[in-house]
Write a protein that binds this DNA or RNA. Structure first.
Lengths: 243, 243
DNA sequence: CACAATGCGTGTCTCGTTTACGCTAAAATA
DNA sequence: TATTTTAGCGTAAACGAGACACGCATTGTG
């Protein structure tokens, strides 16, 4: 093994060292790709799973919609870049944010070699309503189930995002990030139904969620419409067994 | 949202366009990070889960062990870079390879900003034995449960790798990639036990695996030692439901 | 003030899955 | 032919998932 083992792990010096040259390897010869971070921002809006997209105003893919993103600054972590992007687009901070995957095929951007680290964020619908007004018309929310024509490989990225959150929904507590601090069991069930895209049995759902002990009864009730009011619960992170 | 929405998704032109300048954003100003791909190569050896590491011969972390990796070439996909690395280190091709995570904190390499896309590979122990001889002494196999002192943030990367394969073991068929084409049920069970790091019940394990129908009896038997020979099975990818 | 309308909140049974557990079979060696 | 070693098998109990229907608390209306 290691015919010519260049020992490039996490980077040989980029200025050619004597040793690198001895191994016929000069990293400074290599053109560096651009690195961007894109953030798939999702929220439950209008009883739908929606994603924030921005409209491209220039070549390539002019007029198509794209996942918001930007270049990683040289002294900024990937997660910080994602948080910055998130804040710029939505004004919110402290939301659930997770790295999804890194897409780096040559040719995915016709202008240059771009490697994109994709994150996804789950936003509480309530906090978001505030900013829903300023419709710059080149930023918009779209249903994950009815997407417009997307730039680059962004359709693939969103498909993968949906797959990931569906998977995580089953064995983590990510759903709570899409709800305000207090919520009813019915609202929580709707989040699950919207993401999994199928109906769930009310009794079994309640039984399962309550049996985990991750919900705390606030004592308050939510009255809405002409029917019996629903209990309001709060997520109790202390009681979470596994992430 | 989108105070100054720079529309950087998957890259604004790197040459400053009139439009980019109008938005006070000139990507060419930004220093680009280096991008490397590291590959965690794992195999079952000596009834142990082992990983291939290379010894660093220069600053920083001189003398410590590191996950093999190298720069991504400008016209090469991330996965191709990982395959190249894999081939250079082990001589094998066509093995299970999956992207793990991207590590990019500033300061993780003291020489420069390096963003590392980490892949992991699962190698069939049998094919590997051939090359086990050429011990260059700066390449070696180490137990995932007893690692040497590691360079950079590589200890964190290996911990995360182990977590990922444990998770995947439960709902995918990745285990087969660690075995030769034909294997006994006992050998398969050992792979699970070594990765999960706990004993499994023989009868339940056989029942569970056989009930999935992903194994095909080859008809052949494996005789080894002074006891009843075991059936040899083969993995039947056609019968795999999910993953 | 009664009654209709609406969504909240609950319990049980069935069935399939997972776990726990011990003995006989087949081969090699002495 | 006795001993050693691992292969290969079945059943009972516990648990979890899914199916399923009706009384309750509130509001609006006549």
């Amino acid at each position: 093994m290691g015919e010519q083992n260049e020992q490039m792990s996490s980077g040989q010096s980029q200025k050619p060292s004597a040793e690198a040259q001895a191994h016929h390897y000069d990293p400074s010869k290599y053109e560096r790709p651009s690195v961007t971070v894109d953030v798939v921002m999702m929220s439950i809006r209008q009883s739908d799973l929606q994603v924030l997209l921005v409209k491209r105003r220039s070549w390539p893919y002019e007029g198509m919609w794209a996942i918001p993103g930007g270049f990683v600054r040289i002294d900024e972590s990937l997660e910080d870049a994602a948080k910055r992007e998130l804040h710029e687009e939505t004004g919110v901070q402290d939301v659930y944010l997770e790295q999804l995957y890194t897409f780096g095929d040559p040719g995915r951007d016709p202008r240059m070699r771009v490697i994109t680290v994709v994150y996804y964020a789950l936003l509480d619908s309530e906090r978001l309503q505030v900013r829903a007004a300023d419709d710059a018309s080149d930023v918009g929310w779209f249903s994950m189930y009815n997407l417009p024509e997307l730039a680059f490989d962004h359709a693939k990225i969103l498909a993968y995002t949906l797959q990931r959150i569906r998977g995580k929904l089953e064995y983590t507590t990510i759903a709570f990030n899409l709800l305000p601090e207090q919520f009813t069991l019915r609202e929580l069930q709707r989040v699950y139904e919207i993401i999994l895209h199928r109906k769930l049995d009310k009794r079994n759902f309640r039984k399962k969620i309550l049996s985990t002990g991750i919900l705390e009864d606030t004592g308050a009730k939510k009255m809405e419409g002409t029917h019996r009011p629903a209990r309001l619960y709060r997520f109790n992170p202390a009681a979470v067994a596994r992430q």
